[in-house]
Every structure is written in structure tokens, then in C-alpha cells.
Design a protein around this nucleic acid. Structure first.
Lengths: 94, 94
DNA sequence: AGTGACTTGTCATTATTTGTCAAAAATACA
DNA sequence: TGTATTTTTGACAAATAATGACAAGTCACT
């Protein structure tokens, strides 16, 4: 769970960048990005794009994780999560 | 889109029940259930369960549609919707 | 025109999310 | 160890979104 946060932390650590620096680039509080990396808070789409740029990472990769998290949030603790998601996927195919 | 609403309308019409009656059973405004059937508003989980009971329909069926709608809401207009959902599905398998 | 069913738009209320701050905890390292 | 730096935490305020109620509207039918 919290795919995007995990990835962001991994990237940030591999680049030896501080939370403070990322926060400043995104113009948010350090506490906020800390929470994001631990899956406690979500970024919005623009912030994901901006951070992808900052990290020189494929936007698509991070946005995919971001969507994934949002979907998981919505279905968590839901017995029919899987069935519902499969139906939603099918709806997209059409 | 708006799978649950479609289904609810179909069921209601097949049973010749009025919006007013469903609304009264769910203890909400008629306008509200009208919006639900047209996909403009969402029911909460409890209301879905209650309406399944009222219509003598499988709870699972309606809840699945309800989850489906919630997921679609979250990914709509998202270019990476499909990829994100697939990843989310995989995350559930584990 | 009158009635009943449904729809629409607006508004107030409520709930959820987002971001900040201050302080605590963890980490690094002289 | 002591201290400086980084990260985490919890409480709170601000912003945003969802909910429900109401009144007025449309539509179909008589």
C-alpha cells in the first residue's frame, strides 16, 4: 500500500536529497512531504508532475502509482473491491 | 458510467415503484434518489444495502456496482487510469 | 388548466482533505 | 556524550468537497 510514497522515498534517498529540499521545491511544508512518503497524505496531480520533474523521473511512472493509490484508497476494506475494480476496468475498455 | 444508478432505475421501473417511495424508505429527499439514478450523486454503503433489501436484490450485485462507480469517479479523465487500476488490482491479489 | 412524477439549481450544513506549526523523536557525527 | 540536523507526530485552521433539503421547473397525461 502507498505505492507512490514508497517510490518517492526510494528515489529521494538514492539521490541524497532532504525532505526540506523537496518541500521547498513543491512549496509545501516539510511535514507534508514526510506524510506523503509514509502514505499518510496524498499529493495532487500537479504536485506529482512537479516532483517527477524535480527527480528527473518519468511522469507516467509516478502518475500511475498516484492513480493506483487513489484507487486503493477508495476500495480499501471493501469486500467487493476486486469485483468492482474489474467491472470498472471493463467499463474503461469500452 | 454510473452503473449503479442505471441498475437502480432499471429495477425500480421493472417493479413500478415511484421515486417518492424509495426516497421515503431510505429517508432521503426524492430529488436525492433522482440524482442517484442519474449518476449525479452517490449513495453511501448503508444506503446501498438498504435499497438492495427494499428491492429484494443481491446486496453483492449492487455493492459491486457501487464500488465500480467510486473507482470510475476517481480515475475519470486520467490518462493513466488503466495502468493505475491494473497496478491496484495486482496489489489486491497479494 | 390541473395533477402527479421527476428534474434542476441553489443553498446551508457537514464532512473530508490539505497544509502549517510547534514540539518530539530519531539520526548523524564530532 | 552532546549537539546539530533531519524526520515524524499531533493538534489545529483553512480550504475543498459532499450531502441533503427546498423551491421552482419540466414533462406527460387527462
Amino acid at each position: 500500500m502507498k505505492k507512490l510514497g514508497q517510490e518517492l522515498r526510494k528515489i529521494r534517498e538514492s539521490k541524497n536529497i532532504l525532505l526540506r529540499q523537496v518541500a521547498s521545491y513543491l512549496e509545501i511544508d516539510t511535514a507534508m512531504i514526510s506524510k506523503v512518503e509514509r502514505g499518510e497524505r496524498r499529493l495532487n496531480r500537479q504536485q506529482v508532475i512537479k516532483i517527477a520533474e524535480y527527480y528527473n523521473t518519468k511522469e507516467e511512472k509516478l502518475l500511475t502509482l498516484w492513480v493506483c493509490d487513489k484507487v486503493l484508497d477508495v476500495v480499501e476494506n471493501e469486500p467487493f473491491a476486486k469485483k468492482g475494480m474489474q467491472k470498472a476496468l471493463k467499463a474503461l475498455e469500452v
